[in-house]
């Protein structure tokens, strides 16, 4: 697995406030990389450093094997969290201007814009001014100008804010499509459900330090507590409960079921396997429900942040 973007030991101070402290991340090619963290953790500063908007005090960013230079901006597409367009400029003119700033020629930009405007069925917006569009409509234009120059690296900071669910879905599909076409995506958010849906890698930044990084599945594996959610029925539930208590640690579980079950989260001991648990339960009760508890991104996020 090759790496598209490497940030090595990045530190950044603003006067007496430390925004980033020795942060390193590695973003694999063609991945969707979730940059997570609470508000004020330093995500936006890191993203601005990658975009060469802010210079780091220490550390280095490497894009495709080369240290960043101003020429690299044409390989990066950036959709900032604080975004907007010139209100009194016409949509078409504005998109052409921004595309040319990213290094496209006028003709190229025009051709690609036509393609995207057709695709989103918004060709009739071309002569309109931004101030005549709704917020969601303007966001679509903003998305188009971000991806128009076909960058290797796309950086989205809270891309779904401002979109209604339907348009958010369109954008989500486009992000996945761009990844499949070969782009690498860095995706900064604190909305965990979109992380589950999109990201294959994540890094967690908290109080200016990176505290977690890796493949989402690997992280989930290391964070799982070998706990199983079970629903059991037996003649004597009280006795069943004490039998289980003698062998495993458990806590009450809560899920929907048809039967009036005994619902528990049972944690395996150090030497137990799921088969042991299943065999044990099978001997004492009827098993209606048996699922491994896999921590979701939200749990991992909260748990890791709290542990730090």
């Amino acid at each position: 697995m090759s790496i598209l973007l490497e940030a090595n030991n990045i530190s950044k101070n603003f006067a007496d406030f430390q925004a980033l402290s020795d942060v390193s991340i590695q973003v694999p090619k063609r991945s969707i990389f979730g940059l997570l963290g609470p508000n004020g953790a330093g995500k936006t500063t890191l993203i601005r450093i990658i975009n060469q908007i802010t210079m780091p005090d220490a550390g280095q960013v490497i894009l495709d094997g080369e240290p960043l230079t101003p020429e690299h901006v044409q390989y990066i597409g950036y959709l900032p969290e604080e975004r907007g367009l010139y209100k009194s400029m016409k949509v078409g003119e504005q998109a052409l201007y921004l595309a040319q700033l990213k290094g496209l020629s006028y003709a190229q930009a025009k051709k690609r814009l036509n393609y995207w405007f057709e695709k989103f069925e918004i060709a009739h917006w071309w002569e309109k001014k931004i101030q005549e569009l709704s917020k969601g409509m303007a966001q679509k234009i903003q998305f188009i100008v971000t991806v128009l120059h076909q960058p290797k690296l796309l950086i989205f900071d809270e891309p779904f804010s401002g979109f209604d669910p339907i348009n958010a879905n369109i954008i989500k599909d486009e992000i996945l499509y761009l990844r499949d076409e070969g782009a690498t995506v860095i995706f900064s958010t604190h909305r965990m459900e979109s992380v589950e849906e999109l990201c294959d890698h994540i890094a967690l930044i908290h109080q200016s330090k990176k505290i977690l990084e890796g493949k989402l599945n690997d992280i989930k594996r290391t964070h799982k507590t070998n706990t199983f959610e079970v629903g059991l029925s037996a003649n004597d539930l009280v006795q069943l409960k004490s039998e289980i208590a003698s062998r495993f640690k458990f806590s009450k579980a809560d899920f929907r079921s048809l039967e009036d079950d005994l619902k528990l989260n049972i944690q395996l001991g150090a030497k137990d396997t799921p088969r042991d648990l299943l065999a044990f339960l099978n001997e004492n009760a009827q098993i209606n429900h048996f699922v491994e508890v896999i921590p979701n991104a939200n749990d991992i996020f909260i748990q890791t942040v709290n542990n730090n």
Binding site: V73, P80, L98
Partner: peptide, 17 residues
Amino acid sequence: IEEKTSRIIEVIISSVK
């Protein structure tokens, strides 16, 4: 000021100095 209030500024300075 207009560029600041319309929030286009960050988009632009990710392309130019």
